[in-house]
C-alpha cells in the first residue's frame, strides 16, 4: 500500500516535472535566448548576441502600447471585480442546490471557442449590429454610434471573456466564509456595511487578489480581442508580439516583448504572494484604525 502511494507520487510528480520542463521551461529559455539574437531575413534569427531588441522596446511608441494595454487590462480587471463580487455574493446567498447550476452556467460559455464569441460581439457592436439597428429603429439616434473599434469595445470584450475567471475564485472564497463570523460581528454592533468591510472583504482578499490576477494577466496578451474589437488604435501588448512574429518576422524583437511581459506578470505574481502572506500574517487590517 505504502509503496503504491510512493510509486503514484513518483510518477505523478515525475510526469508533471517532465511536462513542465519540456513545454514550459525550455520554450521560455528559447524565447529568452532568441530575444538576444539578431534578425536575419534568410534564417529568421542569427548571431551575434546583443541587447538591441530591448533597447528598441524603449521607443515611445512601444512604451505607449505597454501603458495602454496595462491600462485597458486594469480597467477590465476593475470592471470584472465590480461585477464579479456582487455576482459571487449572490450565488453564495442562493440555496445550496442551486449554486452548482449557476456555476455551471458561468462556465458554459467556455464550451464555445472564445474567438467565435468575440466575432459575436463584433456583430452586436457593429454599425449594422443589433444595438445600433435597435436604437435607430426606435428613433433614438439618426446615424449609428461608433461602438466597435473603440477602447470601450476592447474592455467589454476582455470583461466578457474573463469574467468567469474573476467569479470562480471569488465564489470559492465567499463560500468558505463562516456565517457565524457575521453573526458575531452583528452581535458586536456591526451593521451590514461594516460587516462587509471588516469581515467579508478581508477574509475573501485572497480570492479578490487571485481573481484580479486571473483577469489581469491573460488580458495583457489577448491580441485577438483588440484585433477584432479594437481596430488599429487600441493595441494590447499581445498584438505587438503577434505582429513581430507573424508579419514583421522580427523574432528577436517579439521575443524581447514576450520576456518583458513575462517579467511584468512575474512581478505581479510576486506581489500577490507577498500580499497573501501579509494577509495571513497581519490580518490585513491590523493596527488600531480601520
Amino acid at each position: 500500500m505504502k509503496t503504491n502511494v510512493g510509486q503514484f507520487r513518483f510518477w505523478a510528480i515525475g510526469l508533471a516535472s517532465v511536462w513542465l520542463t519540456l513545454f514550459v521551461f525550455f520554450p521560455n529559455l528559447l524565447v529568452i535566448f532568441t530575444s538576444f539574437l539578431t534578425r536575419d531575413p534568410q534564417a529568421t534569427v542569427s548571431l551575434p548576441i546583443n541587447a538591441d531588441s530591448y533597447i528598441r522596446t524603449l521607443d515611445f511608441l512601444y512604451l505607449k502600447v505597454l501603458w495602454d494595454s496595462l491600462r485597458m487590462s486594469l480597467l477590465a480587471m476593475i470592471v470584472c471585480l465590480f461585477i464579479g463580487y456582487p455576482f459571487a455574493m449572490a450565488i453564495v446567498s442562493l440555496p445550496k442546490r442551486w449554486q452548482p447550476v449557476i456555476l455551471f452556467l458561468v462556465i458554459l460559455p467556455f464550451w464555445t471557442n472564445s474567438l467565435v464569441r468575440t466575432y459575436a460581439i463584433q456583430f452586436i457592436l457593429g454599425n449594422q449590429g443589433i444595438i445600433n439597428k435597435s436604437l435607430i429603429g426606435l428613433g433614438l439616434i439618426d446615424k449609428p454610434l461608433q461602438l466597435l473599434y473603440t477602447q470601450f469595445a476592447v474592455i467589454l470584450g476582455l470583461c466578457y471573456i474573463l469574467l468567469p475567471f474573476m467569479v470562480l475564485p471569488l465564489y470559492s472564497a465567499l463560500e468558505k466564509l463562516d456565517v457565524r463570523l457575521h453573526h458575531a460581528a452583528r452581535d458586536l454592533g456591526a451593521g451590514p456595511l461594516s460587516r462587509f468591510w471588516h469581515i467579508t472583504v478581508p477574509l475573501t482578499s485572497p480570492g479578490i487578489v487571485a481573481g484580479c490576477l486571473m483577469v489581469l494577466l491573460p488580458a495583457m496578451g489577448m491580441f485577438y480581442i483588440s484585433d477584432l474589437l479594437g481596430g488599429a488604435k487600441n493595441l494590447l501588448l499581445g498584438n505587438v508580439i503577434k505582429t513581430q512574429f507573424l508579419h514583421t518576422r522580427d523574432w528577436p524583437f517579439g521575443s524581447a516583448f514576450s520576456v518583458i511581459l513575462i517579467v511584468l506578470l512575474g512581478f505581479m505574481l510576486w506581489l500577490y504572494f507577498r500580499a497573501s502572506r501579509f494577509v495571513s500574517k497581519q490580518g490585513g487590517l491590523n493596527g488600531s484604525d480601520f
Binding site: D178, R180, L181, H183, A184, A185, R186, D187, L188, G189, A190, G191, H198, I199, P202, L203, V279, G283, G284, L285, N286, S288
Partner: peptide, 27 residues
Amino acid sequence: AEKRPINTVFQSYALFPHMTVFDNVAF
C-alpha cells in the same frame, strides 16, 4: 441584533481569524 445592548459568547467562539486578539476585543 447590532443595535441591542446584548452580547454573545458563541459556542464556536467565532473569533475573527484575520484580526489580533486586541482587534477582536476592540471590534
